[in-house]
Amino acid sequence: MNLEFDLILESIPRMLTGIGVTLQLLVLAAVLGLVLGVILLLMRISGRRYLSFPAFIYAYFFRGTPILVQIFVIYHGFPQFEFIRDSVFWVILREPFSCATLALTLNSAAYVSEILRGGYLGVERGLHEAGMALGLKKHHRFFYVTTPIAIRLAIPAYSNEFISMLKATSLASTITLLDMTGVARTIVAQTFAPYEIFISTAVIYLVITTIFQRGFGMFEKRMSRYIRQ
C-alpha cells in the first residue's frame, strides 16, 4: 500500500485541536496527583499504622489494576448507583472529562507516593542524625534536609511516571473525549486511513514526550548540581 503523505499533513493540524484536552488532562492529573501523592506519602511515612496502612492499601489497589478499567468503573460503573447520581459527586461523575481526570489523578497519586517514598528511603540515615544532633526539629529536618535530597532522588522515576501519564491520557478517548487520540479516531472513521492517521498521532506524542523528557533532564541536572560529575 502507499503512504499518503498529503493525508498525514492534512490530518496533523486537525489532531492538534485535541492537544488542548490531552495537556489539560495531563497537567490537572499531574498537579492533583502530586498533591494527593504527597499526602499519601506523609501517611505512609508517618509511623502511625492507622495512617500508613490505608495509604498502603490505596497504592496496592491503584497500582494493581489497569487505568482503563479504573476509567470504566468511574465513568460507566458509578452512575449505576442512584445514591451517587443524587450526591454532589454527580457533578464530577457525569462528565467524561472530569471522570478521566479523576481516574488519572487517583492512579498517578498511587505511583507518585511510591516514587517519593523511594526518594525518602534513599536519603542517608546519617543526614537525619546530623540534623538531629544540631537540634533541628522534625519538620525542619523534613523540609530543609530530607525533602530536597529526596526530590532529586525521585526525579528520574517521576519523569517516567509523568510520561506514562501523558500516554495514559489517550485512554480518555474511550469515554468519548476528543483528546488527540479521540480526534484521530474520529478522522479514521471518516477517512478509513488508520495507518497514516495513527502514525501521525504517534509522532505527535513522541514530540511531546521528547519535550517533557528534555525538561525533566534539565531539572534533574539543576537539582544535582551539588554532585561531583
Binding site: 543526614l127 542524625e129 546530623a130 538531629m132 544532633a133 537540634g135 533541628l136 551539588y226
Partner: peptide, 28 residues
C-alpha cells in the same frame, strides 16, 4: 532538641548536607 543544640557532634562519615554549600551547612 534543645539539649541536642547544646551538644555538638562530629561523625565518622562527616554527614554534611550534600545539597547545601559549605557555608549554608554551617548556618542552617
Amino acid at each position: 532538641d534543645a539539649v541536642r543544640s547544646e551538644v555538638g557532634m562530629v561523625f565518622q562519615n562527616f554527614n554534611l548536607f550534600p545539597h547545601l554549600t559549605v557555608v549554608k551547612n554551617l548556618i542552617l
